[in-house]
Design a protein around this nucleic acid. Structure first.
Lengths: 223, 223
DNA sequence: CCCGTTGTTGTACGATCGTTCAACAAGATC
DNA sequence: GATCTTGTTGAACGATCGTACAACAACGGG
């Protein structure tokens, strides 16, 4: 459905075999450290999406990126740091995507909130590779305290943005916190099942559900 | 918070050291195959909760259960089958818990729906060990098609139960499917963050959010 | 009390894991 | 074109992985 929209390339290395070039064939190509790191991060995300956490070994990621295994240690110091960098990169990608969505949205508070929420159901956020990386990190939350703290901070930041958008929509200050938690949970659940069981419901239906929920939260209470 | 309510025991093996018994000390104790399998399943869930998917090795699980590593191969044939059995056991536990909740609930449709939903925010469903097992299996959905099919079936079954409860509450047939998806997503999101970030909000607040959402879904539309 | 069944142990094996490091070479600098 | 910097390789290393298997022992039935 939303397949292969987040990361498309399969390998970055050129053909090592001889081509039309009559002289020597370069055995490898150098790259800027930042560019190589990004290439390895993207390869890590692809392996995570294809094989899961258990299959994300140093050699598998290096083969996916078309480089040798030792290069990961050279650029990241270890595979743990590479996985952490992959999570940070995906987090930054999602944040930037949501920033763009808000920038392109108009000034109407309700439209901004809807655009912010429904963006989670389309590319590049609703993507199997992105979900696989997220799940890999959820699995680390219970084991590593630093990952747990990173999750808490990011989750709090997401809720804070939701609270600001809700406040602009006229939601009372006393209901701001729980309303943001509710929308965050609904979006998380819809996004999760949208990626895990793509055939169950569509992104448009997820958006309709979210809009209906926003209607209920922004309308005055009955009691 | 809800710690250690799902699985409490730490080891099943008796003390191998000499006690008051003057004669020989048994080097190990036999167990019924079913009892031993259950013991290994519970140990697997504990290791999954403590160390994550990557730490759930044969030796770690066997040490947690107080038995030798080879016993897992004898009873399950391999570690993959043990993890799958752990998932099946936890799924059965959740289903049985929800059955009990519905059995103890009264006949009022709205009360039955609320009881069914809010049960996910209390023990034994809202439990770190249970979440860890669930996350480990989410990580396998993208890699193994049989796990993906198992997830689809279980998710469809959960939504079917929600649809029946919603129909009893008077929800129109045309809105039944999306309403069940909405509630399932909200409950999943709340349950997930309740386990990942226990300090963010309480189980009572999660229940309040869910009840408010049910109010909106069961009340007639404004247009 | 002996004996058969079988749950259990512990070792052994090959494969793969993450990491290290000396040697190599691609590209920039002068 | 010589030289330097450094990104890159590939072969090691020890540790740990999952699995297989023969020997052992606990418990029930004779």
């Amino acid at each position: 459905m939303t397949d292969a929209t987040f990361l498309a390339r399969a390998a970055d290395a050129p053909e090592p075999a001889a081509d039309g070039n009559p002289g020597r064939t370069p055995t490898y190509t150098r790259a800027e450290p930042d560019a190589r790191r990004l290439s390895l991060i993207e390869a890590c995300a692809r392996v995570l999406a294809r094989s899961g956490s258990s299959g994300a070994s140093v050699r598998a990621i290096a083969q996916e990126a078309g480089v040798s295994a030792g290069l990961i240690g050279h650029h990241f110091g270890g595979v743990d740091a590479l996985v952490a960098a992959t999570y940070a990169h995906i987090d930054a990608t999602v944040t930037a995507t949501l920033d763009d969505v808000l920038a392109q949205a108009g000034a109407a508070p309700r439209a901004r909130l809807e655009a912010f929420v429904t963006a989670s159901f389309a590319a590049p956020i609703a993507d199997p590779a992105l979900l696989a990386t997220w799940i890999a990190f959820w699995g680390l939350v219970g084991a590593r305290t630093d990952i747990a703290r990173q999750h808490d901070e990011q989750y709090a930041g997401y809720r804070a943005r939701l609270e600001a958008l809700l406040a602009d929509c006229g939601v009372a200050a006393g209901q701001l916190r729980l309303s943001a938690i509710a929308i965050a949970a609904l979006v998380d659940g819809l996004w999760l099942e949208l990626c895990l069981s793509p055939g169950c419901f569509s992104a448009a239906e997820a958006g309709a559900i979210a809009r209906r929920h926003i209607d209920a939260l922004t309308s005055p209470d009955r009691e």
